[in-house]
Amino acid sequence: MPYELIGISVLWIFLYGYVITASIDFGAGFFSYYGKMTGKGEMIHAVISRYLSPVWEVTNVFLVFFFVGIVGFFPETAYYYGTALMVPASIALLLLAIRGSFYAFSHYGNPKSHIYHLLYGATGLLIPAALSTVLTISEGGYISKLGNTITFHAGALFASPYSWSVVCLALVSVMFISATFLTYYANKANDRQAEEILRTWALFWSLPTIFASILTFMALYVQNPEHFSRMMNNSWWFILSLAFFLNVVRLLILKRSYGFGFVSVMLQFFTAFWGYGASHLPYLLYPYLVIQSSMTSPKMALALIWAFIGGLCLFIPSITLLLRLFLFNANYRKGVIK
């Protein structure tokens, strides 16, 4: 496989890792705020803080890994996106900063103040919305290059139905992923009440997820027909994704095997994400950047791939340890040990 394909695949998998882990976190913020407002807060909050506290930094590193990696493999992206995305990226950074630091402040320093809760819930919605616009922008039409100046057309982005459909999709996916995960976790922790609430939420968000996906497909047809037709060529990824989705809904209705249900959600998003990514190629930014010509030198690419392999050898055992100690450890989940 050519280096640029290896590179983009690795990065894409990391972005996927971020999407899943961060969705759980973002959605949890929203549920926890909503739960507080409707008086169901305490137990949901307990489930959430148990899982999330040891993991949030790891989630953040997934994101850092992605953007450091993409600039490493494809330095031209820094130039185009960096110039164009000054404002949207800064806003996303600001929100991430608020979320990360307030999370730590309140968790270690100060038990739940109201404003913290609000910020935690709100940033959980705003961050995915802001980050998802980068994918929208990559479809082309919002950035133009004249001579040496790169301009970002914010107006066009706000006016575009495609852009809004992506934001919608991002938000409902976050809710869906998060709710199915938390259902599983509450179940494992033997918290029946929380489990039942979260299960209903998961079911509630399942339909919008599918609607938003279809909406996005249609909007993409208008925005970038070329990409749309490549997607049609990759359609079996999306069919697979639909099958996994139906399986999750089935399990949620039958109240069975939530663990397998969450794995199905992961596969549902993995297949869709992979299909989207594969059909997005060769473009990194339509129509300016394609992966072949914007890649770094082969020698560097090789070094990065080796670094990646070495890194994985460290990373996989340590993340397994983390998950075994916190996620899959029955006593920890039930709150017997802190």
């Binding site: 850092v64 600039v71 490493g72």
Partner: peptide, 13 residues
């Protein structure tokens, strides 16, 4: 990019 990439792994760890 190599050191930046390695740095991220070090953070992960």
């Amino acid at each position: 990019s190599l050191p930046l990439f390695l740095e991220t792994f070090a953070f992960f760890f």
